[in-house]
Simulated scan of single mutants.
Amino acid sequence: MIATRAALSQWSDPLEALGTLRADESVTLSATMTEIVTELNFHDGEAVEAGQLLVRLEDAEEQAQLRAVQALRDERRNALSRATQLQQRNLGSRADVEDSQAQLRQVEAEIDEIEARLADYRLRAPFDGIIGFRNISTGSLVTPGMELLTLDKLDVVKLDFRVPEVHLAALEPGLRLTARTAAYPDETFSGEIASIGTRVDPVDRSVAVRAILPNDDLRLRLRPGMLMEVVLQRRPREALVVPESVLVPSGERHYLFVIDESDDNRLERRRVEVGERRVGEVEILAGLEAGELVVHHGVQRARDGEHVALLGIADDETAVRDILRRERQQASPDVPAQGDA
């Protein structure tokens, strides 16, 4: 017989769904006026920082107006200074000083207005992110609403999917999940639920869920628009787990053979209550204690009350086939095991 030891393991009830990735932040920068592009400060796929100048439009006329108003501001400041000096010497009236102050404030407001308009001639990155494809060139004429470039923040991505309302009670922010995509079939990405929709769709009776996945790999493998297969880890808990192959079903009941180490490896056929299952493993709810030995290989030959000889104990480091290969080699040391010749 080959045995395995019942052990406590992290367990959860899987819930599968399909989801679509979205950028953490995403924006399409557009022109707000009709003007010519004079400067481009980015390349396709370039990482940019918040506030970085990306596009400059022709603003010579506005710059000339700004210089003219700045010169007028200097003149108004001088006029205010002279009026103040005269008033201090009792050679001018208080009204002249107040008029000069009002004229200076007026020209400063005009400067603020022109500088605000000039800001529309410069497109800056609103956040750190990755530039998309560049579809404009220096000298291009742009018009209001024309899309100039896209910017996406991809160090983390949002995964949106829907879950039937019957599972709503099991959902909560922070619940762990795993996701896979056809683009990387051998990799699994981990994340957690960030928020749950406030409404249930009355048509398909599902609720929207949004999760967050880290995407800080330098290759930025996860991209907006990707289809992801999602597995939610509901009811995470520590459970008693054994290989599914140790079970002996009988109608609706389940049994297994426990090896009593204190009684010369005597077999005991014991009824157990099973819970959830996953590939190759089953959760035991009652009838077995952690650390007990159960028959893993040779269940068909096991009989209640018999005393058996153990060939080995299978675990995470030693598979059943390894134990069987070792026994064959010990039985016939001169004959190489299959695959060893």
Rank of each mutant, 00 (worst) to 15 (best):
Val294Lys: 02
Val246Asp: 07
Ile284Val: 15
Arg278Glu: 15
Pro249Glu: 03
Pro249Val: 05
Val282Ser: 07
Gly251Leu: 01
His296Met: 08
Ser262Gly: 13
Val294Gly: 05
Val258Phe: 00
Leu267Val: 10
Ala302Tyr: 01
Tyr255Ala: 04
Val272Ile: 12
Glu292His: 06
Glu289Met: 09
Val274Leu: 11
Val246Cys: 01
Leu267Phe: 02
Arg278Lys: 15
Tyr255Thr: 06
Arg270Cys: 07
Val282Arg: 13
Ser250Trp: 00
Leu267Trp: 01
Asn265Pro: 09
His296Asp: 11
Gly291Asn: 07
Glu252Ser: 14
Gly275Cys: 14
Glu261Tyr: 03
Val248Tyr: 02
Asn265Gln: 13
Glu238Cys: 04
Val241Gln: 04
Gly291Phe: 09
Arg278Met: 11
Ser262Asn: 15
Val241Phe: 03
Leu240Arg: 07
Gln300Val: 10
Glu268Ser: 11
Gly275Ile: 10
Leu288Gln: 03
Gly287Val: 11
Val246Ala: 09
Pro249Arg: 07
Val299Asp: 04
Glu276Lys: 14
Ser250Tyr: 07
Phe257Trp: 10
Arg277Thr: 15
Val258Ala: 02
Val299Met: 01
Ala290Gln: 12
Leu256Asn: 03
Glu244Thr: 09
Glu252Arg: 14
Ala302Thr: 03
Gly275Pro: 10
Ala290His: 08
Ile259Ala: 10
